[in-house]
C-alpha cells in the first residue's frame, strides 16, 4: 500500500519534471528498437506478400511473379477436398478437447494442491509435475513410442490385468485419446502455476469469516475459492481459443503414422506434407485459412480478456 502511494506521487511529479528536461530527443530509444524491428521486418513481415500464392497455381520455377492467377480456386478446393475437410474436423475435435481438459484439470489440480499444508511436500510435488513441460515432443514422442507399443510397458501391464492389448498409436480413436491424454500429462502441472498464484492471492480474511459462519471446506471452496479464480480462468480460456486450429504440430507430427492419418492428421501436419509433396499453393491456402481464423480468435480473445478481467499484455 505504502509503496504504491510513493510511486503514485512521484509519478505525478515526474511528468512535471520531464517536460522541463531536454529529454525529447528519443533517437536512442529508436536505436535500441532497431535490431528487433529489422529482424521482424525481414523474417515476419517480408514473407507476408507470399500469401498471394494462395490465389495462384504456384510453380517454384515460375516464382510468385510468373505463376498463373486462379482466384479462389484453392479455397474452393480446400472446402471440397475430402482430405482437407476431414483434416479441419480432426484439428477441431482434438484441440477443443485439449482446451477443455487443459483448463479443467489444472484448476482441479491447483485446488487439490492448495489443500496440502506441508510446504516441503507441496514443493516436491510441484517439482515433479512441472518437469514434463520442459521436455520436447521429440523426446516425449520417443518415450511414448516405446511405452505404448504393442509390447511396451503399458500393454504388458494391461495383459497382467487380463485386459486385451491396445493399439494406442495404431488405431484412430485411440490415437486421439493418446494425443489428448499425453498433452494433458505434459502440461497440466505447468498450466496450474497461474491458478496457484491466483489462489495464494486470495484474501485470508474471507476464509476466516466463512469459518466463523460455520462453513466447511467444500463450501468455502465453492463460495470463495472458485469465484476468486473465475477472472483468471476466463483469461486462460479465451486466450487458449487462439490455438483452436493448432492442436500442437510438434506432438502430432512425432506420434502420427500412416495407420492413423484418417483420424489423427491435423492442419499443420497436412500443410507440411503438402509442402513436401510440392503442392505449394494448397499448403499456403490451408495455412492462410488457419492463420486468419487464429488471428480472429486471438484478437477476439484478447478483447474479451481485456473487457472481462482487465487483462492487458502490453
Amino acid at each position: 500500500m505504502k509503496n504504491n502511494d510513493i510511486i503514485a506521487s512521484t509519478g505525478r511529479s515526474s511528468t512535471a519534471l520531464r517536460s522541463k528536461m531536454p529529454f525529447r530527443k528519443t533517437w536512442r530509444l529508436h536505436l535500441l528498437l532497431l535490431p528487433a524491428v529489422l529482424i521482424a521486418l525481414v523474417f515476419k513481415y517480408a514473407p507476408m506478400p507470399g500469401i498471394i500464392m494462395a490465389f495462384q497455381d504456384f510453380k517454384p520455377w515460375l516464382g510468385i511473379g510468373g505463376s498463373p492467377w486462379i482466384g479462389w480456386d484453392n479455397f474452393e478446393l480446400m472446402f471440397t477436398l475430402n482430405g482437407t475437410v476431414q483434416v479441419i474436423w480432426n484439428t477441431l475435435i482434438i484441440s477443443v478437447l485439449k482446451i477443455i481438459f487443459g483448463l479443467a484439470v489444472p484448476v482441479l489440480f491447483a485446488l487439490l494442491l492448495n489443500e496440502v499444508r506441508n510446504m516441503g511436500l507441496k514443493r516436491s510435488i510441484q517439482t515433479m509435475v512441472y518437469l514434463p513441460h520442459f521436455m520436447s515432443w521429440v523426446i516425449l514422442g520417443g518415450i511414448l513410442l516405446d511405452l505404448l507399443s504393442l509390447d511396451g510397458i503399458v500393454n504388458r501391464l494391461l495383459t497382467t490385468l487380463n485386459i486385451k492389448p491396445v493399439m494406442f498409436l495404431g488405431d484412430g480413436d485411440w490415437f486421439r485419446v493418446t494425443v489428448i491424454v499425453s498433452d494433458l500429462w505434459k502440461e497440466f502441472g505447468f498450466s496450474a502455476i497461474v491458478f496457484l498464484a491466483a489462489l495464494s492471492g486470495i484474501n485470508p480474511d474471507l476464509y476466516e469469516a466463512a469459518e466463523i459462519d460455520g462453513a466447511g471446506r467444500l463450501q468455502q471452496t465453492i463460495n470463495i475459492t472458485l469465484p476468486s479464480l473465475l477472472p483468471i480462468m476466463v483469461v486462460v480460456f479465451t486466450l487458449s481459443l487462439g490455438s483452436m486450429l493448432s492442436a500442437n504440430f510438434d506432438q502430432i507430427y512425432n506420434l502420427i503414422n500412416p495407420l492413423v492419418l484418417g483420424k489423427g492428421d491435423i492442419i499443420d501436419t497436412f500443410v507440411f506434407r503438402s509442402f513436401q509433396d510440392g503442392q505449394y499453393s494448397l499448403a499456403t491456402t490451408v495455412g492462410l485459412f488457419k492463420s486468419l481464423v487464429g488471428f480472429i480468435l486471438i484478437s477476439g480473445g484478447y478483447y474479451v480478456a481485456y473487457k472481462w478481467a482487465n487483462y492487458r499484455i502490453f
Binding site: V37, V42, F43, K44, G50, I51, V271, G294
Partner: peptide, 25 residues
C-alpha cells in the same frame, strides 16, 4: 511499435511463405 510487434505475435504468414523467404535470403 507495440502494434508492430503485437501483429506478428497474432498473425503468421504460414509455412510456405516463410520457407520461400528463408530460401530467398
Amino acid at each position: 511499435y507495440v502494434w508492430f510487434f503485437l501483429f506478428i505475435m497474432i498473425f503468421d504468414a504460414g509455412l510456405v511463405p516463410n520457407y520461400l523467404l528463408v530460401q530467398k535470403v
